[in-house]
Write a protein that binds this DNA or RNA. Sequence first.
DNA 1: GTTTATTTGTGAATAATTTCACAATCAATC
DNA 2: GATTGATTGTGAAATTATTCACAAATAAAC
Lengths: 212, 212
Amino acid sequence: MPKISDSTIRRLSMYYRSLSEFETKGYKTISSEHLAKTEKLTPAQVRKDLSFFGSFGTRGLGYKTRELKERIGKILGLDHIWNVALIGLGNVGSALVSYKEFQKQGFLIKLLFDNDQRKINKKHKGILVSDVKDLVEKLKNNKIEIVIIAVPTQAAQEVADLVVSAGVKTILNFAPTRIKVPQDVVVRFVNMAMELEHLSFCLSNQDFSVAT
Amino acid sequence: MPKISDSTIRRLSMYYRSLSEFETKGYKTISSEHLAKTEKLTPAQVRKDLSFFGSFGTRGLGYKTRELKERIGKILGLDHIWNVALIGLGNVGSALVSYKEFQKQGFLIKLLFDNDQRKINKKHKGILVSDVKDLVEKLKNNKIEIVIIAVPTQAAQEVADLVVSAGVKTILNFAPTRIKVPQDVVVRFVNMAMELEHLSFCLSNQDFSVAT
DNA sequence: GTTTATTTGTGAATAATTTCACAATCAATC
DNA sequence: GATTGATTGTGAAATTATTCACAAATAAAC
Ligand SMILES: NC(=O)c1ccc[n+]([C@@H]2O[C@H](COP(=O)([O-])OP(=O)(O)OC[C@H]3O[C@@H](n4cnc5c(N)ncnc54)[C@H](O)[C@@H]3O)[C@@H](O)[C@H]2O)c1
Ligand SMILES: NC(=O)c1ccc[n+]([C@@H]2O[C@H](COP(=O)([O-])OP(=O)(O)OC[C@H]3O[C@@H](n4cnc5c(N)ncnc54)[C@H](O)[C@@H]3O)[C@@H](O)[C@H]2O)c1
Protein backbone atom coordinates (compact mmCIF):
# COMPACT_ATOMS: atom_id res chain seq x y z
CA MET A 1 0.00 0.00 0.00
CA PRO A 2 1.40 3.41 -0.93
CA LYS A 3 2.38 5.87 1.73
CA ILE A 4 0.69 9.22 1.35
CA SER A 5 2.89 12.10 2.48
CA ASP A 6 1.83 14.90 4.76
CA SER A 7 2.39 17.34 1.91
CA THR A 8 0.02 15.47 -0.35
CA ILE A 9 -2.73 15.45 2.28
CA ARG A 10 -2.17 19.13 2.85
CA ARG A 11 -2.46 19.82 -0.86
CA LEU A 12 -5.62 17.77 -1.15
CA SER A 13 -7.17 20.14 1.38
CA MET A 14 -6.04 23.04 -0.75
CA TYR A 15 -7.48 21.52 -3.91
CA TYR A 16 -10.74 20.90 -2.11
CA ARG A 17 -11.01 24.52 -1.09
CA SER A 18 -10.07 25.78 -4.56
CA LEU A 19 -12.57 23.47 -6.18
CA SER A 20 -15.31 24.77 -3.88
CA GLU A 21 -14.48 28.28 -5.02
CA PHE A 22 -14.44 27.28 -8.68
CA GLU A 23 -17.75 25.50 -8.28
CA THR A 24 -19.28 28.63 -6.76
CA LYS A 25 -17.91 30.69 -9.64
CA GLY A 26 -19.68 28.36 -12.05
CA TYR A 27 -16.72 26.53 -13.59
CA LYS A 28 -17.98 23.18 -14.81
CA THR A 29 -14.55 21.76 -15.58
CA ILE A 30 -11.02 22.62 -14.53
CA SER A 31 -7.59 21.57 -15.74
CA SER A 32 -4.66 20.57 -13.58
CA GLU A 33 -2.92 23.66 -14.92
CA HIS A 34 -5.63 26.02 -13.72
CA LEU A 35 -5.88 24.29 -10.35
CA ALA A 36 -2.11 24.36 -9.99
CA LYS A 37 -1.89 28.06 -10.73
CA THR A 38 -4.32 29.08 -7.99
CA GLU A 39 -2.26 27.18 -5.44
CA LYS A 40 1.16 28.08 -6.87
CA LEU A 41 2.04 24.52 -7.76
CA THR A 42 2.86 22.70 -10.97
CA PRO A 43 0.21 20.83 -12.99
CA ALA A 44 2.29 17.67 -12.65
CA GLN A 45 2.13 17.96 -8.90
CA VAL A 46 -1.64 18.16 -8.96
CA ARG A 47 -1.94 15.16 -11.25
CA LYS A 48 0.59 13.13 -9.27
CA ASP A 49 -1.23 13.83 -6.01
CA LEU A 50 -4.52 12.70 -7.49
CA SER A 51 -2.97 9.66 -9.15
CA PHE A 52 -2.34 8.06 -5.75
CA PHE A 53 -6.09 7.66 -5.40
CA GLY A 54 -7.26 6.90 -8.91
CA SER A 55 -7.81 8.70 -12.20
CA PHE A 56 -10.55 11.23 -12.00
CA GLY A 57 -10.00 13.33 -15.11
CA THR A 58 -10.82 13.24 -18.79
CA ARG A 59 -7.95 13.64 -21.24
CA GLY A 60 -8.35 16.64 -23.44
CA LEU A 61 -10.85 18.20 -21.08
CA GLY A 62 -9.66 18.21 -17.49
CA TYR A 63 -11.69 17.44 -14.38
CA LYS A 64 -15.34 18.00 -13.72
CA THR A 65 -15.26 20.53 -10.92
CA ARG A 66 -18.07 19.18 -8.81
CA GLU A 67 -17.07 15.58 -9.30
CA LEU A 68 -13.42 16.12 -8.41
CA LYS A 69 -14.42 18.12 -5.38
CA GLU A 70 -16.60 15.28 -4.20
CA ARG A 71 -13.93 12.69 -4.90
CA ILE A 72 -11.36 14.63 -2.89
CA GLY A 73 -13.95 15.23 -0.20
CA LYS A 74 -14.41 11.51 0.05
CA ILE A 75 -10.67 10.92 0.24
CA LEU A 76 -10.42 13.48 3.03
CA GLY A 77 -13.33 11.89 4.86
CA LEU A 78 -15.61 14.88 4.37
CA ASP A 79 -18.48 12.67 3.26
CA HIS A 80 -18.97 11.82 6.93
CA ILE A 81 -20.18 13.56 10.01
CA TRP A 82 -17.40 13.34 12.60
CA ASN A 83 -18.17 13.57 16.28
CA VAL A 84 -15.88 16.11 17.86
CA ALA A 85 -15.32 17.13 21.47
CA LEU A 86 -13.58 20.29 22.57
CA ILE A 87 -11.70 20.61 25.84
CA GLY A 88 -10.94 24.03 27.28
CA LEU A 89 -13.52 26.71 26.70
CA GLY A 90 -11.27 29.73 26.91
CA ASN A 91 -10.41 32.27 24.25
CA VAL A 92 -9.46 29.76 21.59
CA GLY A 93 -12.10 27.20 22.51
CA SER A 94 -14.89 29.77 22.36
CA ALA A 95 -13.75 31.00 18.98
CA LEU A 96 -13.83 27.48 17.63
CA VAL A 97 -17.30 26.74 18.98
CA SER A 98 -18.65 29.90 17.37
CA TYR A 99 -17.22 28.96 14.02
CA LYS A 100 -19.97 27.60 11.79
CA GLU A 101 -17.75 26.41 8.95
CA PHE A 102 -16.46 23.36 10.79
CA GLN A 103 -19.94 22.02 11.20
CA LYS A 104 -20.68 22.65 7.52
CA GLN A 105 -17.65 20.54 6.68
CA GLY A 106 -18.92 17.70 8.84
CA PHE A 107 -17.01 18.37 12.04
CA LEU A 108 -19.75 18.39 14.64
CA ILE A 109 -18.74 19.66 18.06
CA LYS A 110 -20.98 17.57 20.29
CA LEU A 111 -19.31 17.93 23.67
CA LEU A 112 -17.56 20.72 25.53
CA PHE A 113 -15.40 20.26 28.61
CA ASP A 114 -13.76 22.57 31.09
CA ASN A 115 -12.54 22.37 34.67
CA ASP A 116 -13.76 25.80 35.69
CA GLN A 117 -16.87 25.53 37.88
CA ARG A 118 -18.13 28.85 36.54
CA LYS A 119 -18.34 27.37 33.06
CA ILE A 120 -19.50 23.84 33.88
CA ASN A 121 -23.21 23.04 33.52
CA LYS A 122 -23.86 26.24 31.63
CA LYS A 123 -24.76 26.26 27.98
CA HIS A 124 -22.34 27.70 25.48
CA LYS A 125 -23.70 28.26 21.97
CA GLY A 126 -26.39 25.74 22.75
CA ILE A 127 -24.02 23.06 24.01
CA LEU A 128 -23.85 22.10 27.69
CA VAL A 129 -20.36 22.39 29.16
CA SER A 130 -19.36 19.23 31.05
CA ASP A 131 -16.90 18.74 33.84
CA VAL A 132 -13.61 17.40 32.57
CA LYS A 133 -13.77 14.72 35.28
CA ASP A 134 -16.51 13.02 33.26
CA LEU A 135 -14.36 13.20 30.14
CA VAL A 136 -13.51 9.55 29.54
CA GLU A 137 -17.00 8.27 30.14
CA LYS A 138 -18.65 10.87 27.92
CA LEU A 139 -16.15 10.54 25.09
CA LYS A 140 -16.90 6.82 25.00
CA ASN A 141 -20.68 7.14 25.31
CA ASN A 142 -20.90 9.72 22.55
CA LYS A 143 -18.59 7.89 20.16
CA ILE A 144 -16.31 10.88 19.88
CA GLU A 145 -13.76 10.44 17.10
CA ILE A 146 -11.83 13.69 17.18
CA VAL A 147 -10.84 15.75 20.22
CA ILE A 148 -9.69 19.35 20.13
CA ILE A 149 -7.45 20.34 23.02
CA ALA A 150 -7.54 24.05 23.86
CA VAL A 151 -6.41 24.06 27.47
CA PRO A 152 -3.37 25.82 28.92
CA THR A 153 -0.03 24.25 28.04
CA GLN A 154 0.58 22.70 31.46
CA ALA A 155 -2.73 20.85 31.34
CA ALA A 156 -2.37 19.57 27.78
CA GLN A 157 -0.55 16.30 28.52
CA GLU A 158 -2.83 15.17 31.34
CA VAL A 159 -5.90 15.94 29.26
CA ALA A 160 -4.39 14.10 26.30
CA ASP A 161 -3.75 11.05 28.47
CA LEU A 162 -7.42 10.93 29.38
CA VAL A 163 -8.45 11.33 25.77
CA VAL A 164 -6.19 8.47 24.73
CA SER A 165 -7.50 6.27 27.53
CA ALA A 166 -11.01 6.84 26.16
CA GLY A 167 -9.88 5.26 22.91
CA VAL A 168 -9.89 8.41 20.77
CA LYS A 169 -7.39 8.13 17.91
CA THR A 170 -7.14 11.67 16.58
CA ILE A 171 -6.34 14.89 18.41
CA LEU A 172 -6.02 18.49 17.32
CA ASN A 173 -3.81 20.30 19.80
CA PHE A 174 -3.71 24.08 20.21
CA ALA A 175 -1.36 24.07 23.18
CA PRO A 176 2.18 24.92 22.08
CA THR A 177 3.72 21.71 23.37
CA ARG A 178 4.27 18.29 21.88
CA ILE A 179 2.02 15.85 23.66
CA LYS A 180 3.10 12.23 23.98
CA VAL A 181 0.67 9.63 22.71
CA PRO A 182 0.84 5.98 21.63
CA GLN A 183 1.87 5.17 18.06
CA ASP A 184 -1.65 4.60 16.81
CA VAL A 185 -2.91 8.03 17.86
CA VAL A 186 -2.53 10.89 15.41
CA VAL A 187 -1.90 14.36 16.79
CA ARG A 188 -1.92 17.44 14.64
CA PHE A 189 -1.15 20.80 16.10
CA VAL A 190 -1.94 24.40 15.34
CA ASN A 191 0.94 26.51 16.49
CA MET A 192 0.47 30.16 15.75
CA ALA A 193 3.71 31.18 17.43
CA MET A 194 5.53 28.95 14.97
CA GLU A 195 4.00 30.82 12.06
CA LEU A 196 4.88 34.19 13.55
CA GLU A 197 8.42 32.94 14.09
CA HIS A 198 8.55 31.93 10.46
CA LEU A 199 7.70 35.50 9.53
CA SER A 200 10.26 37.00 11.86
CA PHE A 201 12.81 34.58 10.44
CA CYS A 202 12.06 35.90 6.98
CA LEU A 203 12.34 39.49 8.14
CA SER A 204 15.63 38.75 9.87
CA ASN A 205 17.24 36.63 7.16
CA GLN A 206 16.45 38.28 3.88
CA ASP A 207 19.87 37.18 2.69
CA PHE A 208 18.75 33.57 2.82
CA SER A 209 16.36 32.91 0.00
CA VAL A 210 13.44 31.33 1.74
CA ALA A 211 11.30 28.84 -0.11
CA THR A 212 7.63 29.74 -0.41
CA MET B 1 23.87 31.75 -0.13
CA PRO B 2 22.20 28.57 1.06
CA LYS B 3 18.46 28.16 0.83
CA ILE B 4 16.81 27.34 4.11
CA SER B 5 13.79 25.10 3.71
CA ASP B 6 10.42 25.63 5.31
CA SER B 7 10.90 22.41 7.24
CA THR B 8 14.14 23.62 8.74
CA ILE B 9 12.59 26.87 9.89
CA ARG B 10 9.69 24.94 11.38
CA ARG B 11 12.06 22.68 13.24
CA LEU B 12 14.08 25.61 14.53
CA SER B 13 10.88 26.82 16.19
CA MET B 14 10.44 23.39 17.71
CA TYR B 15 14.00 23.33 18.99
CA TYR B 16 13.52 26.75 20.48
CA ARG B 17 10.45 25.65 22.37
CA SER B 18 12.12 22.42 23.58
CA LEU B 19 15.19 24.30 24.69
CA SER B 20 13.04 26.71 26.69
CA GLU B 21 11.50 23.73 28.46
CA PHE B 22 14.87 22.13 29.10
CA GLU B 23 16.22 25.39 30.43
CA THR B 24 13.30 25.64 32.87
CA LYS B 25 13.92 22.08 33.97
CA GLY B 26 17.50 23.03 34.81
CA TYR B 27 19.39 21.20 32.06
CA LYS B 28 22.66 23.02 31.52
CA THR B 29 23.62 21.12 28.40
CA ILE B 30 21.77 19.00 25.88
CA SER B 31 22.84 16.64 23.12
CA SER B 32 21.44 16.48 19.62
CA GLU B 33 20.19 13.02 20.53
CA HIS B 34 18.16 14.24 23.47
CA LEU B 35 16.80 17.20 21.54
CA ALA B 36 15.92 14.92 18.64
CA LYS B 37 14.06 12.48 20.82
CA THR B 38 11.72 15.08 22.28
CA GLU B 39 10.73 16.17 18.78
CA LYS B 40 10.70 12.70 17.22
CA LEU B 41 13.54 13.46 14.85
CA THR B 42 17.00 12.05 14.29
CA PRO B 43 20.12 13.56 15.91
CA ALA B 44 21.61 14.00 12.44
CA GLN B 45 18.60 16.10 11.44
CA VAL B 46 19.09 18.40 14.40
CA ARG B 47 22.78 18.82 13.72
CA LYS B 48 22.24 19.37 10.01
CA ASP B 49 19.62 22.05 10.65
CA LEU B 50 21.94 23.90 12.98
CA SER B 51 24.92 23.51 10.66
CA PHE B 52 23.32 25.86 8.13
CA PHE B 53 23.85 28.68 10.60
CA GLY B 54 27.12 27.80 12.24
CA SER B 55 28.54 25.37 14.77
CA PHE B 56 27.17 25.96 18.19
CA GLY B 57 28.05 22.77 20.04
CA THR B 58 30.99 21.26 21.83
CA ARG B 59 32.13 17.81 20.73
CA GLY B 60 31.92 15.27 23.50
CA LEU B 61 29.51 17.46 25.45
CA GLY B 62 26.63 18.70 23.35
CA TYR B 63 25.10 22.15 23.38
CA LYS B 64 24.78 24.60 26.24
CA THR B 65 21.03 24.83 26.64
CA ARG B 66 20.73 28.54 27.25
CA GLU B 67 23.30 29.46 24.66
CA LEU B 68 21.73 27.35 21.91
CA LYS B 69 18.30 28.70 22.77
CA GLU B 70 19.59 32.22 22.40
CA ARG B 71 21.39 31.42 19.17
CA ILE B 72 18.25 29.92 17.65
CA GLY B 73 16.21 32.79 19.03
CA LYS B 74 18.51 35.15 17.19
CA ILE B 75 18.20 33.15 13.97
CA LEU B 76 14.41 33.26 14.29
CA GLY B 77 14.50 36.98 14.94
CA LEU B 78 13.27 36.66 18.51
CA ASP B 79 15.94 39.01 19.79
CA HIS B 80 13.82 41.86 18.42
CA ILE B 81 10.57 43.49 19.26
CA TRP B 82 8.37 43.26 16.17
CA ASN B 83 5.57 45.73 15.62
CA VAL B 84 2.41 43.86 14.81
CA ALA B 85 -1.04 45.03 13.74
CA LEU B 86 -4.15 42.90 13.84
CA ILE B 87 -7.08 43.37 11.50
CA GLY B 88 -10.48 41.93 12.40
CA LEU B 89 -11.40 41.91 16.05
CA GLY B 90 -13.84 39.01 15.99
CA ASN B 91 -13.59 35.66 17.69
CA VAL B 92 -10.13 34.83 16.46
CA GLY B 93 -8.78 38.37 16.67
CA SER B 94 -9.91 38.76 20.28
CA ALA B 95 -8.35 35.47 21.27
CA LEU B 96 -5.05 36.58 19.79
CA VAL B 97 -5.08 39.96 21.51
CA SER B 98 -5.71 38.29 24.87
CA TYR B 99 -2.81 35.95 24.41
CA LYS B 100 0.14 37.16 26.47
CA GLU B 101 2.71 34.73 25.11
CA PHE B 102 3.11 36.49 21.78
CA GLN B 103 4.18 39.66 23.48
CA LYS B 104 6.63 37.72 25.65
CA GLN B 105 8.18 36.39 22.46
CA GLY B 106 8.59 39.87 21.08
CA PHE B 107 5.48 40.13 18.93
CA LEU B 108 3.92 43.35 20.10
CA ILE B 109 0.40 43.99 18.89
CA LYS B 110 0.40 47.76 18.62
CA LEU B 111 -2.61 48.43 16.44
CA LEU B 112 -6.07 46.93 16.07
CA PHE B 113 -8.39 47.51 13.13
CA ASP B 114 -11.99 46.68 12.36
CA ASN B 115 -14.73 48.04 10.12
CA ASP B 116 -17.51 47.63 12.63
CA GLN B 117 -18.52 51.02 14.06
CA ARG B 118 -19.49 49.35 17.34
CA LYS B 119 -15.88 48.28 17.85
CA ILE B 120 -14.07 51.30 16.44
CA ASN B 121 -12.73 53.91 18.88
CA LYS B 122 -13.28 51.60 21.83
CA LYS B 123 -10.42 50.11 23.77
CA HIS B 124 -9.82 46.40 23.61
CA LYS B 125 -7.36 45.01 26.18
CA GLY B 126 -5.94 48.47 26.46
CA ILE B 127 -5.52 49.04 22.75
CA LEU B 128 -7.66 51.47 20.81
CA VAL B 129 -9.46 49.92 17.86
CA SER B 130 -8.98 51.97 14.68
CA ASP B 131 -11.11 52.22 11.60
CA VAL B 132 -9.78 50.06 8.80
CA LYS B 133 -10.05 53.06 6.48
CA ASP B 134 -7.05 54.55 8.27
CA LEU B 135 -5.14 51.32 7.82
CA VAL B 136 -2.46 52.29 5.33
CA GLU B 137 -1.59 55.54 7.01
CA LYS B 138 -1.35 54.02 10.48
CA LEU B 139 0.62 50.98 9.38
CA LYS B 140 3.19 53.32 7.87
CA ASN B 141 3.30 55.75 10.77
CA ASN B 142 3.74 53.03 13.34
CA LYS B 143 6.38 51.13 11.40
CA ILE B 144 4.33 47.95 11.48
CA GLU B 145 6.34 44.97 10.26
CA ILE B 146 3.88 42.10 10.63
CA VAL B 147 0.14 42.12 10.02
CA ILE B 148 -2.29 39.49 11.24
CA ILE B 149 -5.42 39.16 9.12
CA ALA B 150 -8.42 37.80 11.02
CA VAL B 151 -11.29 39.12 8.92
CA PRO B 152 -13.96 37.06 7.15
CA THR B 153 -12.78 35.21 4.06
CA GLN B 154 -14.44 37.55 1.55
CA ALA B 155 -12.66 40.57 3.03
CA ALA B 156 -9.22 38.98 3.25
CA GLN B 157 -7.94 39.89 -0.20
CA GLU B 158 -9.00 43.53 -0.12
CA VAL B 159 -7.48 43.96 3.32
CA ALA B 160 -4.30 42.23 2.17
CA ASP B 161 -4.05 44.61 -0.79
CA LEU B 162 -4.12 47.57 1.59
CA VAL B 163 -1.53 45.97 3.82
CA VAL B 164 0.77 45.40 0.86
CA SER B 165 0.29 48.96 -0.35
CA ALA B 166 1.46 50.15 3.06
CA GLY B 167 4.74 48.37 2.43
CA VAL B 168 4.33 45.58 4.95
CA LYS B 169 6.29 42.49 3.89
CA THR B 170 4.97 39.75 6.17
CA ILE B 171 1.39 38.63 6.78
CA LEU B 172 -0.16 35.95 8.96
CA ASN B 173 -3.51 35.01 7.48
CA PHE B 174 -6.27 33.25 9.40
CA ALA B 175 -8.83 33.41 6.61
CA PRO B 176 -9.08 30.08 4.81
CA THR B 177 -8.19 31.46 1.41
CA ARG B 178 -4.95 32.00 -0.45
CA ILE B 179 -4.38 35.72 -0.75
CA LYS B 180 -2.44 37.03 -3.71
CA VAL B 181 0.55 39.23 -2.93
CA PRO B 182 3.68 40.39 -4.77
CA GLN B 183 6.70 38.10 -4.78
CA ASP B 184 8.54 39.95 -2.04
CA VAL B 185 5.73 39.62 0.50
CA VAL B 186 5.66 36.51 2.69
CA VAL B 187 2.29 35.12 3.70
CA ARG B 188 1.93 32.33 6.23
CA PHE B 189 -1.44 30.95 7.05
CA VAL B 190 -3.08 29.20 9.93
CA ASN B 191 -5.73 26.90 8.56
CA MET B 192 -7.46 24.91 11.23
CA ALA B 193 -9.86 23.23 8.81
CA MET B 194 -6.85 21.82 7.03
CA GLU B 195 -5.64 20.20 10.21
CA LEU B 196 -9.06 18.75 10.96
CA GLU B 197 -9.17 17.41 7.42
CA HIS B 198 -5.83 15.78 7.98
CA LEU B 199 -7.30 13.98 10.96
CA SER B 200 -10.40 12.87 9.11
CA PHE B 201 -8.16 11.67 6.29
CA CYS B 202 -6.29 9.51 8.79
CA LEU B 203 -9.52 8.15 10.21
CA SER B 204 -10.82 7.38 6.73
CA ASN B 205 -7.66 5.91 5.26
CA GLN B 206 -6.12 3.72 7.90
CA ASP B 207 -5.03 1.40 5.12
CA PHE B 208 -2.63 4.04 3.87
CA SER B 209 0.25 4.31 6.27
CA VAL B 210 0.39 8.00 6.97
CA ALA B 211 3.68 9.59 7.82
CA THR B 212 3.84 11.27 11.22
C1' DG C 1 -15.48 9.90 -39.65
C1' DT C 2 -10.99 12.02 -39.88
C1' DT C 3 -8.05 15.43 -38.14
C1' DT C 4 -6.47 18.64 -34.74
C1' DA C 5 -5.88 20.51 -30.28
C1' DT C 6 -5.93 19.48 -25.47
C1' DT C 7 -5.02 17.47 -21.32
C1' DT C 8 -4.54 13.43 -18.51
C1' DG C 9 -1.81 9.71 -16.19
C1' DT C 10 2.55 7.95 -15.34
C1' DG C 11 7.34 6.00 -15.70
C1' DA C 12 11.80 8.15 -15.83
C1' DA C 13 14.76 11.96 -14.58
C1' DT C 14 15.89 15.43 -11.50
C1' DA C 15 15.99 17.84 -7.26
C1' DA C 16 15.56 18.18 -2.42
C1' DT C 17 15.75 16.29 2.02
C1' DT C 18 17.13 13.10 5.33
C1' DT C 19 20.13 9.75 7.16
C1' DC C 20 24.55 7.51 7.49
C1' DA C 21 29.03 7.13 8.97
C1' DC C 22 33.13 8.70 10.58
C1' DA C 23 37.04 11.91 11.35
C1' DA C 24 37.65 15.69 14.45
C1' DT C 25 37.34 17.49 18.87
C1' DC C 26 36.71 18.11 23.57
C1' DA C 27 35.66 16.79 28.66
C1' DA C 28 36.61 13.80 32.08
C1' DT C 29 39.37 10.35 34.20
C1' DC C 30 43.42 8.29 35.74
C1' DG D 1 49.48 14.66 29.99
C1' DA D 2 48.02 10.42 27.92
C1' DT D 3 43.75 7.67 27.51
C1' DT D 4 38.92 6.92 27.24
C1' DG D 5 34.34 8.02 26.08
C1' DA D 6 31.12 11.01 24.16
C1' DT D 7 29.27 13.95 20.76
C1' DT D 8 29.68 17.26 17.12
C1' DG D 9 29.99 18.74 12.19
C1' DT D 10 29.78 17.29 7.63
C1' DG D 11 30.67 15.06 3.07
C1' DA D 12 28.62 11.00 0.88
C1' DA D 13 24.81 7.82 0.38
C1' DA D 14 20.12 6.84 0.60
C1' DT D 15 15.63 8.12 0.45
C1' DT D 16 11.75 10.95 -0.71
C1' DA D 17 9.45 14.45 -3.35
C1' DT D 18 8.90 16.99 -7.43
C1' DT D 19 9.14 17.85 -12.22
C1' DC D 20 9.70 16.34 -16.92
C1' DA D 21 8.17 14.48 -20.98
C1' DC D 22 5.40 11.84 -23.70
C1' DA D 23 2.08 8.15 -25.07
C1' DA D 24 -2.79 7.59 -24.53
C1' DA D 25 -7.17 9.32 -24.65
C1' DT D 26 -10.79 12.38 -25.56
C1' DA D 27 -13.38 16.61 -27.17
C1' DA D 28 -14.08 19.69 -30.73
C1' DA D 29 -13.72 21.16 -35.37
C1' DC D 30 -14.26 20.32 -39.99
N1 LIG E 1 -5.44 32.64 22.71
C1 LIG E 1 -4.61 32.54 21.67
O1 LIG E 1 -4.64 33.36 20.76
C2 LIG E 1 -3.65 31.42 21.58
C3 LIG E 1 -2.69 31.47 20.61
C4 LIG E 1 -1.80 30.43 20.47
C5 LIG E 1 -1.90 29.36 21.33
N2 LIG E 1 -2.84 29.32 22.28
C6 LIG E 1 -2.90 28.14 23.15
O2 LIG E 1 -4.21 27.62 23.15
C7 LIG E 1 -4.53 27.11 24.42
C8 LIG E 1 -5.76 27.80 24.94
O3 LIG E 1 -5.53 29.19 24.98
P1 LIG E 1 -6.60 30.21 25.50
O4 LIG E 1 -6.10 31.55 25.23
O5 LIG E 1 -7.93 29.83 25.01
O6 LIG E 1 -6.52 29.94 27.09
P2 LIG E 1 -7.64 30.28 28.17
O7 LIG E 1 -6.95 30.36 29.46
O8 LIG E 1 -8.47 31.40 27.70
O9 LIG E 1 -8.56 28.99 28.16
C9 LIG E 1 -8.20 27.76 28.68
C10 LIG E 1 -9.45 27.06 29.16
O10 LIG E 1 -9.10 25.74 29.58
C11 LIG E 1 -9.73 25.49 30.84
N3 LIG E 1 -8.92 24.49 31.54
C12 LIG E 1 -7.79 24.66 32.23
N4 LIG E 1 -7.33 23.49 32.69
C13 LIG E 1 -8.20 22.57 32.29
C14 LIG E 1 -8.27 21.16 32.45
N5 LIG E 1 -7.33 20.48 33.11
N6 LIG E 1 -9.30 20.51 31.88
C15 LIG E 1 -10.24 21.18 31.19
N7 LIG E 1 -10.23 22.49 30.99
C16 LIG E 1 -9.21 23.18 31.55
C17 LIG E 1 -9.80 26.83 31.53
O11 LIG E 1 -10.83 26.84 32.50
C18 LIG E 1 -10.12 27.75 30.36
O12 LIG E 1 -11.48 27.84 30.14
C19 LIG E 1 -3.33 27.37 25.31
O13 LIG E 1 -2.54 26.21 25.36
C20 LIG E 1 -2.61 28.46 24.59
O14 LIG E 1 -1.23 28.41 24.84
C21 LIG E 1 -3.73 30.33 22.42
N1 LIG F 1 -13.48 31.37 14.67
C1 LIG F 1 -12.74 30.32 14.35
O1 LIG F 1 -12.58 29.40 15.15
C2 LIG F 1 -12.08 30.23 13.04
C3 LIG F 1 -11.52 29.02 12.68
C4 LIG F 1 -10.88 28.91 11.46
C5 LIG F 1 -10.80 30.00 10.64
N2 LIG F 1 -11.35 31.16 10.99
C6 LIG F 1 -11.23 32.30 10.08
O2 LIG F 1 -10.70 33.41 10.76
C7 LIG F 1 -11.28 34.62 10.28
C8 LIG F 1 -11.93 35.34 11.42
O3 LIG F 1 -12.89 34.50 12.01
P1 LIG F 1 -13.78 34.98 13.22
O4 LIG F 1 -14.50 33.80 13.71
O5 LIG F 1 -12.96 35.76 14.17
O6 LIG F 1 -14.80 35.94 12.48
P2 LIG F 1 -15.67 37.12 13.11
O7 LIG F 1 -16.81 37.35 12.21
O8 LIG F 1 -15.92 36.79 14.54
O9 LIG F 1 -14.69 38.35 13.09
C9 LIG F 1 -14.36 39.05 11.94
C10 LIG F 1 -14.07 40.48 12.32
O10 LIG F 1 -13.59 41.19 11.19
C11 LIG F 1 -14.26 42.41 11.08
N3 LIG F 1 -14.25 42.80 9.67
C12 LIG F 1 -15.06 42.38 8.68
N4 LIG F 1 -14.71 42.93 7.52
C13 LIG F 1 -13.68 43.75 7.77
C14 LIG F 1 -12.88 44.59 6.97
N5 LIG F 1 -13.08 44.73 5.66
N6 LIG F 1 -11.91 45.28 7.57
C15 LIG F 1 -11.67 45.15 8.89
N7 LIG F 1 -12.39 44.37 9.69
C16 LIG F 1 -13.38 43.66 9.13
C17 LIG F 1 -15.63 42.17 11.64
O11 LIG F 1 -16.21 43.39 12.08
C18 LIG F 1 -15.31 41.23 12.79
O12 LIG F 1 -15.01 41.96 13.96
C19 LIG F 1 -12.28 34.20 9.22
O13 LIG F 1 -11.68 34.31 7.96
C20 LIG F 1 -12.55 32.76 9.55
O14 LIG F 1 -12.89 32.04 8.41
C21 LIG F 1 -12.00 31.29 12.18
